[in-house]
Each structure stands twice: as structure tokens, then as C-alpha cells.
């Protein structure tokens, strides 16, 4: 799936406006993502991060503007499932299928959407579960797995479609603290494979480590779009971003107020 000319961005969002009823959740979003880029979307709660990533695979309808993925316009119709097959998503609440084993959760989409055989799909699924460290748990139901394990199955499920892009919407926010690390490690490994990723996260040190572009949002707008070294290093450009970083770090038990950016050095 590479119809685009080398110069065209892989995801192209143009003048996107999104309303929930009267309330405008996204204002004039313009964003071009090159293949292989890893974007960290950060910003206060309610700033529109989830809404933005959910527009990319049309889990949310938008009212104006366009989104193109690999040259295909994202809209209702024949091509929508084609786009969705290329855009994997990992949810805050995992959303695994509770009536299927981990293995079937991972295998089913390639069978239904790509039309491969169950045998082949299960072989691939097992390899993917191995990759996220869960091959021993292949035959368990989601309810028999910990939150961290469930999220790793969900990542394997998204990877099974061999997507060009992966969207993560706060993948560790629903997890007990001791399980955050195992999931972030898996995401980092996936990032190293060169797949394009958009990650909504509040894990600042992770964002710094894994991303090569930081998008800071507030009140439905993109306020900053900078490399992580710049955003975290010499401090974000805007006062608002400064304020946000500071408040996140205040919530951090180890963060000293006098040297707020030091914890980011890891």
C-alpha cells in the first residue's frame, strides 16, 4: 500500500474541525505525518488528544476538513475498512474481545479482514504473543490476564494486521503502576521496527525517549509541534506548555519543583 508520492506525507490532516453538538473539540487542525515518524501527543485532559487520534480511523466523525492516510481519504464508504485495516489502534481500556482466547483475539482480524486461513493466522498470532512475552498465556481469556498482559495482547492484536500506522490512546492510563513498565517496553520495541505511531500519553519520560516529534495540544488546538529534545530539553516554547509540564511533574512524587525537568533525564 504505497500509492503516495515520496514527497507526500503518510497522514495528512487539513483544516480539521470537530464538534460534539455545539461544542468544538478540534479547531483548525493541520498535521502532516511522515512515514516512520513517532509522535507523542500530550496536553491537559480534555484538550482533544483522543478526539484527534479517533478521527484518523473515523471512530469519531468530523464536520470539516480532510484526513488522508496513504493517499486515501478517510470517510464513510468503501475505502473506510481499507484505511482501518492499515491503521491499528490500542485503547486505554484494552477492549479485548472477552469471549475469545488471547490467541483468537490476535488471529481473528487477519482471518476476517485479510482473508488468510485460521491456521496461518494462529501461527502468526502465536509468534506475536511470543514477541510481547505472552506465548504461555495464548489460551487464556482476557479475564484471566492482568491489565498489563491484556494491553500487551491488545498490542499484538493491532500488530497482527501489519498496520502502517499505530494509534495509542493513553495505553497505560488504566494500568496499575507496576504494570506500566512492561507495556511501555513493548511499545518501545514496536517503535524500533519503524512503524509510524501516534501516542497519546501522560508518561513524559517515555514520550521523550520514544518519540521524535512532540505535539502539544490545548483546548482543541495544536499549540506546539517540536522535536522532543527541544520540548523537554531547553523547555517548551509556549508558556502554556511550560505550565503543563510543570503541573504534570508536580503530580510526580519524585519531582522537585525547583528543577522540574530533571526527572525527565531518567
Amino acid at each position: 500500500m504505497t500509492h503516495q508520492k515520496a514527497t507526500q506525507p503518510f497522514i495528512k490532516i487539513t483544516d480539521l474541525q470537530k464538534f460534539y453538538g455545539q461544542f468544538q473539540a478540534l479547531h483548525d487542525i493541520n498535521l502532516a505525518v511522515e512515514k516512520g515518524q513517532i509522535l507523542a501527543l500530550i496536553g491537559p485532559s480534555g484538550s482533544g488528544k483522543s478526539t484527534l487520534v479517533r478521527c484518523i480511523n473515523l471512530l469519531e466523525q468530523f464536520q470539516a476538513g480532510t484526513i488522508e492516510v496513504d493517499g486515501i481519504e478517510v470517510k464513510e464508504g468503501r475505502n473506510l475498512n481499507k484505511v482501518r485495516a492499515e491503521v491499528g489502534m490500542v485503547f486505554q481500556q484494552f477492549n479485548l474481545f472477552p469471549h475469545m482466547t488471547a490467541l483468537k483475539n490476535v488471529a481473528i482480524a487477519p482471518v476476517r479482514v485479510r482473508g488468510i486461513s485460521w491456521e496461518e493466522a494462529e501461527k502468526k498470532a502465536l509468534a506475536l504473543l511470543e514477541r510481547v512475552g505472552l506465548s504461555q498465556h495464548a489460551h487464556k481469556r482476557p479475564s484471566q490476564l492482568s491489565g498489563g498482559q491484556q494491553q500487551r495482547v491488545a498490542i499484538a492484536r493491532a500488530l497482527a494486521m501489519e498496520p502502517e500506522v499505530l494509534l495509542f490512546d493513553e495505553p497505560t492510563s488504566a494500568l496499575d503502576p507496576e504494570m506500566v513498565g512492561e507495556v511501555l517496553d513493548v511499545i518501545q520495541k514496536v517503535a524500533e521496527t519503524g512503524v509510524t505511531m501516534l501516542i497519546v500519553t501522560h508518561e513524559m519520560s517515555f514520550a521523550r525517549r520514544v518519540s521524535n516529534r512532540v505535539i502539544f495540544m490545548e483546548q482543541g488546538r495544536i499549540i506546539e509541534d517540536t522535536p522532543p529534545e527541544e520540548f523537554f530539553g531547553c523547555g517548551p516554547k509556549t508558556d502554556r506548555a511550560q505550565l503543563f509540564i510543570r503541573s504534570v511533574l508536580q503530580g510526580h512524587p519524585d519531582a522537585g519543583l525547583t528543577a522540574p525537568l530533571q526527572v525527565l533525564e531518567d
Binding site: 482501518r84 491499528g88 472477552p98 469471549h99 481473528i108 476476517r112 479482514v113 492484536r157 493491532a158
Partner: peptide, 26 residues
Amino acid sequence: AIGQFEAAKALGFSWTDMMKDVVLPQ
């Protein structure tokens, strides 16, 4: 749960497969 519909859609399931494999069994 609405998340079940969303997960199936995000994977590219057709409506029929989403109902048959994900929604109706539950």
C-alpha cells in the same frame, strides 16, 4: 460495551463480521 464495537471497527471488520463475531456472541 461501546469499546467492543470500536475495537472491531478499528481492526477493519465489516459490519456483518463485527456483529457475528464480536457483538452478538456477547
